[in-house]
Amino acid sequence: MTSTTVEVLSVRSPAMPRGARVAAYLFTGFLRWISSPAQPRQPSRAEEAAEVRRLAYQMQATDPGFANDLFAAASRHESLGD
C-alpha cells in the first residue's frame, strides 16, 4: 500500500476592516438617493389654463363652439385659485 502526502497552503481570509460596513451602507444609500427619480413638478393653475387655451386656439377654426367652451373652462379653472 502506498500513501501520498500533499501539503496544502492555507490562507486565512483577512478580517473585514472596521469601518467597511458603515462605509458600504452609506455608499449604497447615496447611490439609491442619486438614482431615485425626481418628483415631477406640478404645473400652476395659470400654466394649466394656458395649455387649455392653446388647445382652444387650435380648435377654433374647426369647432368654434367647443373652443369657446375651452376658453370658459380655462378662465374658471384659473379663477379657482383666487
Results as ranks from 00 to 15, higher is better:
13 S>A: 12
78 E>P: 05
28 T>G: 03
30 F>G: 14
70 L>P: 02
67 A>F: 02
54 R>I: 06
48 E>F: 01
65 G>P: 03
25 Y>S: 09
43 P>M: 02
21 R>H: 02
65 G>V: 07
13 S>L: 14
80 L>Q: 15
61 A>F: 09
25 Y>W: 06
14 P>G: 07
37 P>Y: 09
40 P>K: 04
16 M>I: 03
31 L>K: 01
29 G>Q: 09
49 A>Q: 11
12 R>D: 13
46 A>R: 11
11 V>K: 12
24 A>D: 00
67 A>D: 03
65 G>L: 10
34 I>R: 10
40 P>C: 06
24 A>C: 04
16 M>D: 02
27 F>A: 13
23 A>C: 04
53 R>K: 13
43 P>E: 01
31 L>N: 00
82 D>Q: 11
37 P>R: 14
42 Q>W: 09
72 A>T: 15
5 T>Y: 05
41 R>T: 00
10 S>V: 06
27 F>R: 09
81 G>C: 04
44 S>C: 06
79 S>M: 10
26 L>S: 04
68 N>K: 07
47 E>Q: 15
29 G>E: 02
40 P>M: 09
66 F>V: 01
36 S>E: 11
81 G>M: 09
8 V>I: 15
39 Q>A: 04
37 P>E: 12
20 A>H: 03
62 T>K: 10
33 W>G: 15
36 S>V: 02
45 R>W: 11
42 Q>R: 15
64 P>C: 12
26 L>W: 04
46 A>V: 04
73 A>R: 12
76 R>G: 12
26 L>T: 04
5 T>R: 08
80 L>G: 10
16 M>V: 11
15 A>N: 06
8 V>G: 01
60 Q>Y: 06
22 V>S: 09
73 A>M: 09
30 F>E: 05
35 S>F: 12
29 G>P: 02
32 R>G: 05
36 S>M: 08
39 Q>I: 03
71 F>W: 08
38 A>H: 12
15 A>I: 05
74 A>P: 10
21 R>Y: 05
31 L>C: 11
16 M>P: 02
36 S>F: 07
20 A>D: 00
36 S>H: 14
71 F>A: 01
12 R>T: 13
18 R>G: 11
19 G>V: 01
